[in-house]
Nucleic acid binder design. Structure first.
Lengths: 223, 223, 223, 223
DNA sequence: TATGAATGAGAGTTCATTCAT
DNA sequence: TATGAATGAACTCTCATTCAT
C-alpha cells in the first residue's frame, strides 16, 4: 500500500475518504493483475490489459506501481503473508504437536489452494524464472515458509524428545515438505484440475509426509 | 532431429557425411540454446544470441528448429529421456526393492543434478509458465517420471505384499516424491548454490522420502 | 509575475500579505526550476520534480505558470534582464569608452558567469533548440544584448571619430562578441570546469576582442 | 559505417553488392535523420518518422544504428570530419600564414555554412544539451576544431616570430574564434535567414577576428 | 488558491520470424 | 542448405496537462 501521508496527523474527512479511495484503487488494480497473470500468464498480460481490467488508465497503474514487475512482487508479498498465516494458524491451534503439523498440511490444500487458486498460479507458476528481482522475492517467500516449517519441526521434535541427524536435516526436510505442497498443488490444480478432489489428494500427501517425519524421529533419538 | 532422408536406403559416403554434419549442427545449436536459456533465461535469450553462440546464422537455427519454443521443447524431451534413464538404471540395478528406490533418489541428486545443472535450470525454472504448448510438454515429462515412480512404488509394494490406501495414493506419493526432488534441487542448486554439498543434502531428502514410503507400507497391509 | 489584482487600489493588510506570499511562491518555483534545468537538463526535469523541489503541488506550478515552457521563458526573461544590467552598469561607469567596453567584458565573466553559473547553463545550453517558442525568446534575448553591444560600439566609435565599414559591420561585430562570451563560458564552465580560472580566461578573451575592435576602428576612419 | 565482414578476404560479387547496398541504406537513413533533425528538431523527430523518410522499417533503422542517440552521434562525427577538412584545406593552401587563417574563416561561412546548413543546425542547435553522451561527442568535436585553430595560430605565430601571453591565451583565442563562427552562423542562418548575405557577413566577422589576432601578435613579442 | 490523482497519447526499443539471394 | 537484412507488431514506460474536490 502506498503511504503518501507520512505525517501522522489527524486527517480531515475528505482526506480520509481520498485515502480510502486510493487504497481501494490499489487493491482493484492488484486484483485485476492477479487474475490476468493467473489466467493469461505474466508475459502475455500487458499493462494496457491490466489497466482496462481495472477500469483505469495505464498511467494510473504506473501511479500506484513502479512497473510491471512491482505488481507481481506486491502480489507475492501479499500472498506470502496469507500463506504463512494460514499454515501458522492451523499449526498453533494444536500446540507444537504432530497433529498441528498435519493440520497445517490440510490447511494448505483445503484452505489456501481451494480459496486462492490464482495465488497458487502466481506463486508456483507465473513468478518462476522471470527476472533476478522476482526470483529474489520468490526465494524470500519460500525461505520464510521453509523457516516456519523447520521451526515447527524442531518445536515438535523438542516436545517429543528427539532430534535430527545431519547438518542440514531439519532444513532439508522443511524444503522437501514445501516441495510436496508445491508439486501436488501444481499437478492437481493446474494440470489435472481435480480441484474437487484436492482434499483427498492433500490428505494422502500429508499422510505421506507425516509418515516421513515420524519415521525420521523414531530413527533418530535425541542426543 | 529432423529426418530428411526418410527412405532407409544405402546412403552414399557424402550423404552420410552430410547427415553427420547436420546432426552435429543440430546438437551444437541445442547445446548453445541450453546454455543460454539456463544462464540468461529463456526470454532474455534472443534467437540472434543463440545463432551467434552456435556460430551459425539466424536462418540456420530456423532450418533446424520450427521456432524458439521448439528449441526448448526439444531440450525438454531430450532431458526427459536422460532423467528417466538415470533414475531407471539405478532402480533396476537392485530389482524392485526399497534399495533400488533409494539408489534412484541418490542418482537424481548425485548424477543428474551434478552432471546437468543446466538441464535442471531448464526443466525446473526456464520452462515454467511460458506457454500452453510448453506447459503441455512439461506436464508430459513430469507425468512420465511420476508414472515411473508410481510403477516402481507398486512393484516394490507387490514384492513386499502391501498396497496403498486411497484411490490416488500411489500417484500422489509419486507426485510428492517428484516435488521433493524438484524443490530440493531448486533450493540448493539455484538459490543457495551448495552444489558441493548436494550429495549430503540429497541423502537427507532421500532418507526422508524413504521413511515416508516405509511408513505408508507398514501402516497399510495388503488386502 | 501573474498580476491578479489589476485595479491599483489601496490593498488591505491581508491582501498585501497574500500578494507577498504569492510573489514568494512564484520565485521559489522559478528558483527550483532553474536549479533542476541547469543540473538535470530541461527534458529530464519533470513538472513533478519541480513541484517537489519547490514544496508545492503540481497544480500550484500550473497556477503560477502556463506550462513547462513558460517556466523556462520566464527564466530567460529574468536572466536577460540581469545580464544586460550587469554589462550595462560596467559599461556606463566609464562613459562610452573603450575602457567601459573592456569592463563590460570582465563583468560578464567575473560577475555573471561566476555568480550565476546556473543561469549560464540555461541560457547557453538548456534553452537551445527546444521549441520555436523558446527559440523566439532566446533570439529576443540575444538580439537585445547584441543591440546593446552594437550601440555601445557605435557610441565609442562616435566618441573617437570613427565608423564601421559594411552594411552589417557593427552588428556582425556585436554578434561576434556575444559568440566569444558564449563559447568561452560554455567551454570553461561546463566542459572543463575551470571556474576558478575563469577570471584569467575572461581577461584573455576580452583582450582578444578589444584587439579586434581596436584594429577595426583604426583601419576604418569615419567618413 | 557498420563493418560486418571483419575477415579481409576476397569478397564474392554478390557479397560486394550486398555490402554496397548496406552502405547505401546506412547513408540513406543518416541523410533522412539529418534532414528531420534539422527541420523538425531532434526530439520532435520520432524513429518512425525517420524510418518512413528513409523508406525502411523501424527495425531496419535499429539494425543500422544502436539507438536514436547513435544516429545523431554518427552525424556529429561525420560532420566533424567535413568541417575540419574544409577549414584545414583552406588554411593549408596558403601555408601557415595570416592569409591562410583568413581563408579558413571564409571557408567556414562560404563553404560549410552554405553547403551544409542542415549540418550547422545539428552541430550548433540540435545536439546541444541533449544528453551527457551527446555532450561528450560535441565536446570532442569542438575540442578538435579548437585544437586545429590553436595549432594554426601557433604555426602562424612562429612563422612571424611572436608568441602569446598567458597560460591559456592561444587556446582561449581559438575558443573565441570558434565562438564567433558559431554565433554568427546561428544568428544569420537560423534566426535572420540571411543566407544570401552570409558571404559579406562572414567577411566582416573574419575581418574582426583577424584584427583581434593581429593586435595580439603585435602586443606580444616572442620570448 | 491549492491539491494530487488521473489521463492517454506518444516515444523508444526489442525480437521472433520471414525470405530473397 | 545457409545467410542475414528486413519487417512490424507489441510492449513498457514517461510525463505534460487537466480537473474534481
Amino acid at each position: 500500500m502506498p503511504e503518501k501521508t507520512s505525517k501522522t496527523e489527524i486527517l480531515s474527512k475528505s482526506a480520509l475518504r481520498r485515502q480510502r479511495e486510493r487504497e481501494h484503487r490499489y487493491q482493484t488494480i492488484l486484483a485485476a493483475a492477479e487474475k490476468l497473470f493467473a489466467t493469461e500468464g505474466y508475459h502475455k498480460s500487458s499493462m494496457e490489459q491490466i489497466a482496462n481490467a481495472s477500469e483505469v488508465s495505464v498511467g494510473a497503474v504506473y501511479f500506484y506501481f513502479k512497473n510491471k514487475e512491482d505488481l507481481i512482487i506486491q502480489l507475492l508479498d501479499e500472498m506470502g503473508y496469507i500463506l504463512r498465516s494460514t499454515l501458522g494458524k492451523a499449526f498453533k491451534k494444536y500446540g507444537a504437536t504432530m497433529e498441528g503439523f498435519k493440520q497445517a498440511g490440510y490447511a494448505f490444500f483445503e484452505e489456501f489452494c481451494v480459496k486462492y487458486p490464482e495465488k497458487c498460479a502466481i506463486i508456483f507458476r507465473e513468478s518462476v524464472g522471470k527476472s533476478p528481482e522476482m526470483e529474489q522475492h520468490r526465494k524470500e517467500l519460500f525461505d520464510k515458509c521453509t523457516g516456519d516449517v523447520r521451526n515447527a519441526l524442531l518445536a515438535v521434535c523438542e516436545n517429543q524428545g528427539f532430534s535430527f541427524k545431519g547438518k542440514y536435516s531439519a532444513e532439508v526436510i522443511a524444503v522437501s515438505i514445501m516441495g510436496i505442497y508445491e508439486r501436488v498443488a501444481y499437478q492437481y490444480l493446474f494440470w489435472q484440475d481435480e480441484t474437487h478432489d484436492i482434499k483427498l489428494i492433500g490428505r494422502d500427501a500429508v499422510a505421506f509426509l507425516i509418515g516421513g517425519v515420524n519415521n525420521l524421529l523414531n530413527e533418530t533419538p535425541c542426543t
